[in-house]
Design a protein around this nucleic acid. Structure first.
Lengths: 337, 337
DNA sequence: TTGAAAGCGCTACCAA
DNA sequence: TTGGTAGCGCTTTCAA
């Protein structure tokens, strides 16, 4: 194993100079720095993680807590984990996984043992049990998602309410008086934090714009394609010609199929907006306007906030809502009365 | 922060006694042990991770490397990550995630910095670039999956070849002379290690039993339900009345739909076996015989092997193939000639 | 611009 | 059965 002493000896300097040359916390002359870097390279030196943790003030590890509820949508979840890991690594941090029961217990454990510098919270529930833990541990904690009670917490998320309002606005602007909202699974409106937020925003704006909003929870189209199909048929029978879809990939597929079967052309006879989808809506058989949910944005911001909190422990806790963006590809057309 | 000194003072013993009481590496009298445990509890003591790493010989962390290729099936992948995390935690280890580009680079980094005690390898490719890295790093590495070149490696996996043979055997035993194998995506037969292994086993046994095996790669039914449908129709037209499905959930759904549309009853007019599925096949609309892929089994074994390697660094590297198990629910019926 | 040295909080060896 | 203590390999303060 290569230690800092061997690097120092090879470069003909003291170990403190090596340490400073690598951390950049003290100016080191160009010449010595070069010699040190050469030695580091030649010896394949990598600072010992344990020693660094003990002596320094940083572990260079973030914990990522993910309870993985039964209704967790695997592809979306994976996108968030990946985005977090990439963002963290870019700042020099590794990700330690706290899954399942460890999602809560582990927070106390890793905080008490100084294993991590900060904790990132995924899969946030409305009444998340990690909220009180976050308040009690000394370790900076960032929520990616909004629990109901967020007093004193730092949270990051897409502004789902604004996304809901934006979608309704666009359709109302186009003259639609009735809008169908094809939503997430029933259970996710109770167990997750974001479906209800989007719904609330849409309902608010529907009231404000005096349009009718017909909401129906969907399932996954795979396990229950017929339910999605039924929802869509019902909406069409009601006279709805404007759809907001806040659901997974396959629900979009079914909706578009049913519309096609009815001879309705999207962006012509019927309007469709996909709200807060994290998959690539460009891959759908018909182009659909979208208000994308971009995991990278939330996760990078979360990591930035964690780092900021480390540099300045007094940084105030706040809620960071990312404003939704509307991407038009022509799937919304004027209402035909 | 609570240190071992405070615990020692509270319990009226020396720090070494506290250390030994907690690690169990030296006998400690019942009385003292109790007092120490009380103190630990009262103070909420948790050993400092950095100090433990530096002083001890263990970091109590395993790295989990997952490249996440585009064709990775998210739900299956998550099941493996979860199973690994749970198994590791049960033995007192946390999981450090090495994703994306870090899947390879990170191995060298965490090994050189002594951040982890062992490395677990997921999403193994036939020509996996982590194979040479595993050979060169000093850190024990366990592959969950089989690369083509496994000389000197420790690997764990379901015996997919045996699973393929077993499925063919059962259908051949029932008198079927033609079998359709509805497989994974085209790309996964090149990029992943297991689809080809199951296929090879099935082909071998088909040759041995002198039955015809019609293999077709499938896609995901969501993105290409019509392709799955077409495969099935073709197979039926060919006269195939026996199906082996080695594919994701939704492909099963489509197959069963098409069979139903043709008025063919599973376990009666037509035989179906689901091979190496990691989802719950009991949730399918029709009960189907299955040779399950159980992530828990592979992952627990992998973790056990890692721990064993730590205790005995000279433990020999070997390939551990988990024998497939056949679960019959009556979806295979005698061929009707 | 550089060096010397004091810990960081444990584990594990040596004594008792 | 227990205690004392020498490191583990760094970071960072103090001095030069």
């Amino acid at each position: 194993m290569t230690t800092i002493h061997e690097v120092a000896r090879a470069a003909g300097v003291s170990i403190s100079t090596v340490s400073y040359a690598l951390s950049g916390k003290r100016p080191v002359s160009e010449k010595t720095r070069m010699r040190i870097e050469d030695a580091v390279h030649a010896l394949g030196y990598e600072p010992d993680a344990g020693a660094r943790m003990l002596a320094g003030r940083r572990t260079h590890i973030f914990a990522l807590t993910e309870p993985l509820r039964a209704d967790t949508h695997a592809p979306t979840h994976m996108a968030f984990v990946l985005a977090t890991a990439v963002a963290a690594r870019r700042q020099g941090f590794d990700i330690l996984l706290l899954t399942d029961e460890q999602a809560s217990e582990g927070m106390n454990r890793v905080a008490a043992s100084n294993l991590v510098d900060a904790i990132l919270v995924l899969d946030v529930a409305p009444d998340d049990e990690r909220v009180p833990i976050a308040r009690s541990v000394g370790t900076p904690t960032i929520f990616i998602g909004l629990p109901d009670d967020r007093e004193g917490l730092t949270c990051v998320d897409l502004d789902f309410e604004a996304a809901g309002r934006l979608a309704v606005d666009r359709l109302a602007d186009a003259g639609h008086r009735r809008i169908a909202l094809l939503g997430q699974t029933e259970v996710s409106y109770r167990k997750s934090n974001f479906p209800r937020r989007l719904l609330r925003g849409a309902q608010e704006q529907a009231a404000a714009r005096d349009v009718t909003l017909d909401w129906s929870a969907s399932g996954s189209a795979v396990t229950d394609a017929s339910a999605v199909r039924a929802c869509t048929e019902t909406a069409l029978a009601r006279g709805d010609r404007a759809f907001i879809v806040h659901a997974v990939d396959d629900v979009h597929q079914v909706l578009l199929s049913v519309l096609a079967e009815h001879g309705l052309r999207v962006g012509d006879d019927v309007s469709v907006i996909s709200a807060a989808a994290s998959f690539d809506t460009a891959a759908l058989p018909v182009p659909v306007d979208t208000i994308p949910l971009v995991p990278q944005r939330s996760c990078e911001l979360a990591v930035d906030l964690a780092v900021r909190r480390l540099d300045d422990p007094l940084a105030p806790a706040e809620i960071h809502l990312i404003p939704p963006e509307y991407r038009s590809v022509g799937s919304v057309s004027p209402a035909q009365d």
